[in-house]
Design a protein around this nucleic acid. Sequence first.
RNA 1: GGGCGCGUAGCUCAAUUGGCAGAGCAACUGACUCUUAAUCAGUAGGUUGUAGGUUCGAUUCCUACCGCGCUCACCA
Length: 500
Amino acid sequence: MSLEDDLFEQRAARVSEIEALGYRPFGKRFDFTHTVPEVFERFGSKTGEELEAEKIRVRIAGRIQTVRRMGKAGFMHVQQNGGKLQFYVRKDAVPERDYALFGMLDIGDIVGAEGYLFITRTGELSLHVEALEFLSKTLLAMPEKFHGLEDTETRYRQRYLDLISNPEVRDVFVTRAKVVSSIRRQLEERGFIEVETPMMQPVYGGAAARPFVTHHNTLDIDLYLRIAPELYLKRLIVGGLERVFEINRNFRNEGVSTRHNPEFTMVEFYQAYTDYNGLMDLTETMLRQIAIDATGGTVVPFGEHQLDFGSVRRLTMRDAVVEFWEGEGGPTPGQVRDSAWLLANAPKATAGECLAHLFEVHAEKKLIQPTIIYEFPVEVSPLANNNPNEPAMVDRFEIFVASMEIGNAYTELNNPLEQRRRFDGQLDMQARGDDEAHQMDEDYLRAMSYGMPPTGGEGIGIDRLVMLMTNRTSIRDVILFPLLRPEAEIGMADRLRRLG
RNA sequence: GGGCGCGUAGCUCAAUUGGCAGAGCAACUGACUCUUAAUCAGUAGGUUGUAGGUUCGAUUCCUACCGCGCUCACCA
């Protein structure tokens, strides 16, 4: 028998022992008076004398992190809600039955206790337990207390263990929640309403990506998991919902990396009667506020850098290529406007694609501080409006931070005649073998033909933004359950079956 | 998909040119009424990712496969 099975059976046997003492081994309702962090907020600054005089009674529940037993007394640390509180249990202060229970507790068990707060000789605010309640049993051994759980595979597969074992992981996801709620609140304050549009779509669009395909049985149709909500949100703009946003998953059937997960979260928002300049201002304000809401300030550490969300630089894609050109033969501002020069200096079919390619190769990795890059070529922007002064360019910008693209925005194309031409252009690209080219969307053309107001629209990648706010270099560290290949057989059901 | 790396006890890690698989934590038994990575004494725990191969002998060398990580390509 392996050690793990041995341990498993020992603990299963302990379930009966706990039951024999008169406790329910899988617990019951426990009305606590404070969370552990609340205990420290409210009473953390009191002195030992004050606590002795006031005898503050509390009821606390949580998971046992460490136990130190010394014969007729002992300590344990109990973690709950991101904090940990020390419990002091002594034989002469609790019912006999509770002390017997204390003797058979395992690290990882969940308990509740009632008692009063005091400060130990070593100065730690603790709970002097007067009654102990058993709330749930762990049958499996917890990760080691000192190093925690380090194995990345186990951390991602069993995120619950990661969360129990590594407090900073909890902080990452708390920060993630702050980022999302900051975005939601800021948009709502400006009159945006949150909507939900189809994630299963008969025609996919709104981005250049390969989709996942699924099937609906009774309708007998293939559907695509959406690669972006864009086309539906703009239909809502046509319908008069003039400020809408959606925060949810997109699915792209592409490789995984430290910056890509097949499902990822975006916020997309659309505002009628503005344009990409309006969105630049809004983006700057929002990013700044997100940093404050998530981290407490506008300067955020990221690796060796200090990212300053207090100011956002703006420059055109052409200027970026000129400024950041690597190596010899850097172009002049005139050359990056010259189709012949572009076509001669990048391996793409059109001048616009060449410019975008040169930008990606030379400039992107150098954009560490928050930077808005604007004026994009029309060839890589099938849904954005042409610049009135230069039809080869569109009124579009992207936000880069720490070499990552985290946002994309433009003045929406609202001319159905031009949109038809763009779709046809995409079909041509498809015919030439580009499997990420945009599909024709007839209903979208129809919606636009009813008249869509001038509109600005933007999408921000939440996962990447959270990476920046939490100083994580892998997207898997900010997604609770990142996609992994299925695990080999676990055998848990069989093990439990053997116990009855 | 390509390249590089990793996989040893529940967890964190060792193991000498290829020569008896080990430690700490967790667990078990005992001692201990202010400890905090509690301490002290003792006990138990292994299909070295899987399958082959080389060898007297493989955790170690070789091949394939599985899983994970990093990276390049692609994308956001």
